[in-house]
Design a protein around this nucleic acid. Structure first.
Lengths: 206, 206, 206, 206
DNA sequence: GATGAATGAGACTTCATTCAT
DNA sequence: CATGAATGAAGTCTCATTCAT
């Protein structure tokens, strides 16, 4: 019936789904959970029936978006965990990579924010599996690094502090449309070194 | 002439509006912008028609909630600005007060989070006035303190870092239902002193 | 209990009910059946609970308004029916009186318009009695006059034509806020004499 | 690419919108401004979601109905304006066409009545443009005809009289469910020739 | 008698989703 | 595969009405 080969169809499928997820991420950034499938379709330059052709419903789409983001996140921070160097350096590298990935890939930012907010505007708890996976694949390794060399007693608390700060700072920047000028290094520096007075006459020494 | 005096009616109005705002804050925390007036009414133990008796619509209610929170926020941080002591101490005190107020008063937390998210799920821009006021009454004074004694060159950036971290950390805690055990002091300490390794051999001394 | 005598109370009652009906007529003119009791109360300068103190519900109020108007209408046109003179003159006088009363008393206009529109926006048929009375007390006498000396075969049709024209013209004028300058005589003249060319130089010859 | 062509979709849209407007006109006749979208949907034999698929809200639907009616009205009376013959004949022809169109096409009647009532139950003044257009396209040409050969001094007043009478008579007839037996010729005759006694002895000759 | 707080039935409207083409 | 017409469940909001004071 179809003049296309299976491979061609799969390629189209792949293409369309990415198109839609990308669009969904952009719309989600603006509207949050209130995003409408119609808007996603418009932004993806597709008919809105088409979105339903690929995703059974809104939540499937968001779920796919987040799982995909989880994979990308894991990939992105891997280097920080496998490299050698002191725990503090590893933790810093991890934080830096997380930040940079957030800025470059909207879905990753959305994932982090959503986890941080404990999925509070998602109905039901269809995301507990996702959260568990996030804990296992992203947070626990990070906690491990912290336990190892920074805060053996309560690494979870420290991880939460870092994670919360990071997400808070990046959200502030992204939502105020300052995405292109986020000072990732400044954020990392603040998190790890704190707020230190820079006196006027000392500028050159910084 | 009047069966209830004007004063009595005003007292009732005041009472009901607070009742409703308190309920709205609780529901908002759970559902975000998707809160339903019906739920607010139930939580406030009022008929839902009553909510509409006081608020023309959902957005008016949220607007009032946020303006009210702004007033409370201003009041709460005032001591930090007027007291004497070095800028660093002032900034710390300011941050600490902001945090504590967030934890104690839900509406204040909601305000801070909403400002941080740049009102991204509110339709239209009916909140630009609120944002402007927030900047003028809360953020600018804080920026002033930072400029004075911490970071004369780019106090705004530093203020954003602190504000973002603070909101991020508190959100993480509150959304994960750890509201009662938020370690405000730990957050302040991290923000101002950074992440410092506590070595194993020191555990006993902590 | 009450320091007022029964007479005083009755006087207040009478006063209030007129106040309310007058207000209702004005609001009805603007909003039609969509009038709100609250608006009536505001226009009558009374609390809206007070309106319900006198009228069990919206429809009772309108019903009272229309019955009252029917009485006034009957009274107003009586002279035209009882006087002597030819049928044509009587019919003209009747029409003129109807018109003049409409202009002076809003409720009468509302009654005529409502009858003309067959109560089409009133729910149910609680007004069939009113309509029957209107027919009997206003329309039939008028039809009688017409049958007598103008149109013995189908006086109803002629009465309808006159009545329709009259209500249509007056409605046009009143709804376009030209109430104070309605040319009653012009309308009567048109109805009875028709449209006749008045050429520029020929005016005297008409 | 498209499963239905754009042309097919446009045809469906056109069809549905007419279906809905027709239904709306019928319901409006019964209920006036209080018409419910649900009733319109039922009468159009469509789901009520479908009505909203085509019209953002009730007022948009009515607005479209009236604009459409304005176009039809203009078309209908055109012959009276362009034909030759004396002004009086033209005016009569115009009036007759207006009447006939009213009877045949409900939306036209609704337009005329609504204009006559100055849109008094429509909220806001979203209809001022429509009214202006009505004046320009329907009323002014008619006034022109009257000025030309009937009433050079105050053609507006005469036009108003005719228009008011016409709308009043037709409304009386239509609202009393006598739509099928409206004596258009009788109305035109009355408007232009007035009320003239037909004496008993003359019956056979009429 | 006078009032406005309180209420919920019922209308309005949105938007996720289905389905025919 | 691709699309937009069609739909109704579920929310929003209005406003007539009741009732305590």
């Amino acid at each position: 019936m179809s003049p296309r080969t299976k491979e061609q169809n799969d390629a189209i499928r792949e293409l369309r789904m990415n198109q839609i997820m990308q669009a969904a991420a952009e719309v989600y950034l603006e509207k949050g959970i209130q995003l409408e499938i119609r808007e996603v379709a418009v932004k993806a330059e597709l008919g809105y029936g088409t979105v339903y052709h690929y995703y059974k419903n809104k939540h499937m789409l968001l779920e796919d978006l987040l799982w995909d983001a989880l994979n990308r996140t894991e990939e992105a921070v891997l280097p920080a965990l496998t490299g050698d160097g002191g725990s503090l350096l590893k933790a810093e590298a991890f934080t830096r990579l997380l930040l940079q990935t957030c800025i470059q890939e909207l879905p990753v930012f959305i994932l982090l924010k959503t986890v941080s907010d404990n999925f509070h505007h998602f109905p039901g708890n269809r995301f507990s599996k996702l959260f568990a996976d996030f804990q296992e694949r992203i947070l626990l390794p990070f906690i491990g690094v912290i336990r190892e060399g920074i805060h053996p007693q309560s690494p979870e608390k420290t991880a939460n502090l870092i994670f919360g700060s990071l997400v808070g700072c990046i959200a502030l920047n992204i939502h105020h449309n300052m995405r292109d000028e986020v000072d990732a290094e400044g954020i990392v520096h603040m998190i790890f070194s704190g707020i230190q007075p820079k006196e006027r006459g000392m500028e050159w020494s910084s």
